[in-house]
């Protein structure tokens, strides 16, 4: 069977597949869940999946620019999480609810 050899030889492709699966899981979390904070967590998961593919490409191409990108993505993700959580806290204070169906209409 030729498949076994390809399965056992771990290369960049395996990491990219893993990254794709994690990314689609993050996307599903944003699409399916209705809790604002869980949706934010889905975004974090997507960013992490992208980080994984950056690192895999960096290893494959032997350049460190991928690591730098991951560094930047992490900083942005931390900032984004801070803003998102502050907004979630503000929303919770106003509506006492985090389920997104309660504030799909833009009324104060």
């Amino acid at each position: 069977m030729p498949g076994i050899e390809a399965l056992m030889h771990i290369g960049i492709k395996h990491y990219l597949f893993l990254s794709a699966i994690l990314f689609s899981f993050g996307m599903l979390a944003v699409l399916l869940r209705r809790n604002v904070i869980v949706m934010l967590m889905g975004i974090e998961l997507m960013l992490n999946a992208v980080n994984l593919s950056f690192i895999a490409f960096a290893k494959e191409s032997g350049s460190l620019s991928g690591h730098i990108m991951v560094f930047f993505v992490m900083t942005i993700a931390a900032a984004e999480a801070g803003v998102g959580l502050a907004l979630a806290v503000a929303i919770y204070k106003k509506f006492h609810e985090l389920n997104i169906r309660f504030f799909e209409h833009l009324r104060g």
Partner: peptide, 24 residues
């Protein structure tokens, strides 16, 4: 749709990985 997206990633990386330069 999420499955299709993952499938596009799979197919894309599978067919285009050979373009990458070998590590310098």
């Amino acid at each position: 749709s999420a499955g299709l997206l993952a499938g596009i990633f799979f197919a894309g990386s599978d067919s285009s990985i050979a373009i990458l330069d070998t590590p310098a």
